[in-house]
């Protein structure tokens, strides 16, 4: 439980006593000092601290290109069910979308090599409906039911620092993640009926692609407060077409409220570094995601939301997601 974590973080499978750092309590300064201190601050493969940092929000009503990954090594399964809605206009045409996703996933950290974790997420159900109104003649709904994309990730924990008196923990974790086009929603006939197409453009409708997500997450916990920052560069290789480059950033903060409750707030930013391909439209997005969780033992239940605004070449777009997540940590 997060509320108890500050005083008694449990090294559930820790084989060695944690090392104490020797730097100042301010998080950034500690990191800089730790980097500068050389191998003394670097966790070894057999000397990983058991960080109790809050995992980031994970609800997805629509496709999210580069969701944040947690820093702490863990073994868990999770699922999220969310519904979302969005709207935009072009001239006198107005569009409303209602969509939702069921995403399931998990992370496995081998006990014999805890530097690495392997994870996968799969949108087992992606539903999408669009209401098109172009007065006076057009007023129609269309709906699609699909599966979504599959994401597989390998992440490592090359840096982990546990500071004196259990007051400050630091973690930096890199990852490589592949987003694979198992979704068929990109093939939908409606121009805007596939959220992933909105982000990556229409090229992915005609061509196979893979998103190669290179990123890292830094997290720091100080007493009841956790902060994390993920940066991802996402080259998207599209067969027989131009590659695309996206930059995703997640900045989050969590607060342990006691009695197993946690409060989180994230700021997500997605930008396109390359020129938008024909039909893509979306050039950049920003979203604010609040969430509240409750946990007991290995179980965490979350009520999470996301309110996003997308800048389009022609029309601004906004959407809102609300969903439930459940996660079970086998190590807790």
């Amino acid at each position: 439980m997060t509320g108890a974590r500050n005083a008694r973080r449990r090294p559930v499978r820790r084989s060695d006593p944690r090392r104490a750092g020797t730097v100042a309590p301010a998080a950034v300064a500690v990191l800089v000092a730790a980097l500068g201190a050389g191998s003394a601050a670097v966790a070894r493969a057999d000397d990983l601290p058991r960080l109790g940092l809050l995992p980031p929000l994970s609800v997805e009503g629509g496709a999210v290109v580069a969701p944040s990954l947690g820093v702490a090594p863990a073994n868990y399964v999770w699922g999220g069910l969310a519904a979302a809605g969005g709207a935009w206009s072009a001239g006198r045409a107005e569009y409303e979308e209602v969509f939702g996703r069921l995403v399931v996933g998990g992370v496995w950290t081998p006990s014999f090599f805890q530097r690495l974790s392997f994870g996968a997420d799969f949108a087992a159900l992606a539903v999408h409906s669009i209401h098109t109104v172009v007065p006076p003649a057009i007023d129609e709904w269309a709906a699609d039911f699909d599966v979504g994309e599959l994401r597989v990730a390998i992440s490592g924990l090359p840096w982990a620092v546990d500071l004196p008196d259990d007051e400050v923990q630091l973690g930096v974790r890199a990852h490589v993640r592949l987003t694979l086009p198992t979704d068929i929603s990109r093939w939908n006939e409606g121009r805007r009926a596939a959220p992933l197409r909105r982000v990556l453009g229409d090229d992915i409708r005609e061509h196979e692609f893979v998103g190669i997500d290179l990123g890292g997450t830094f997290a720091v916990q100080w007493t009841l407060l956790t902060a994390y920052q993920t940066l991802c560069l996402v080259p998207v290789a599209v067969v027989d077409s131009e590659p695309q480059f996206l930059l995703a950033s997640t900045t989050g903060a969590g607060l342990a409220l006691g009695l197993g409750f946690e409060l989180l707030l994230e700021l997500n930013v997605l930008g396109r570094l390359t020129e938008a391909p024909a039909g893509a439209g979306r050039l950049g997005a920003v979203a604010v995601s609040p969430g509240v969780r409750w946990g007991t033992g290995g179980l965490r239940l979350g009520l999470e939301a996301r309110v996003g605004l997308v800048e389009d070449a022609a029309a601004p777009y906004g959407d809102a997601t609300l969903g439930l997540t459940a996660r079970y940590d086998f190590d807790r």
Binding site: V98, S129, W141
Partner: peptide, 17 residues
Amino acid sequence: MWLAAFVAATAVAGCNE
């Protein structure tokens, strides 16, 4: 609310077909 709207939308979409 969204789910309800989605169900309604789906029903209407089905009629359109």
